[in-house]
């Protein structure tokens, strides 16, 4: 499943994932955004992995915020925008 979201005033965020046993699996977030340090991308993917596919945007955003903590700088991307890209992937029927 594939979802894309161009964050207003920001960059493109892409979510690729599958749903297995009602949970997000194989989550890969990508896009032309900026993250420091670059290892934060792995933290984002792991924070989403295993979340119930029924989780709403607020729940996903909260899980991302908790996993990322304070030390990560984001530019052109936000945890809310990542959640929107995931939501769009979950709506993808292709």
């Amino acid at each position: 499943m594939h979802g894309e979201y161009k964050m207003p005033g920001g960059k493109l965020i892409v979510a690729d994932l599958v749903v297995r046993d009602g949970r997000l699996a194989g989550v890969s977030i990508s896009g032309d955004f900026f993250l420091e340090p670059d290892t934060a991308l792995g933290i984002i993917d792991r924070a989403l992995e295993g979340l119930p596919a029924s989780a709403d945007k607020e729940k996903m955003t909260a899980a991302l915020n908790e996993a990322l903590g304070e030390g990560v700088s984001m530019f052109g991307i936000s945890t809310e925008a990542v959640a929107v890209a995931v939501e769009r992937a979950l709506e993808d029927r292709s």
Binding site: V14, D16, I29, S30, F34, L35, L41
Partner: peptide
């Protein structure tokens, strides 16, 4: 490609 872009995308 950028550090966070998907190669196949």
């Amino acid at each position: 490609i950028g550090r966070f872009q998907s190669l196949r995308n």
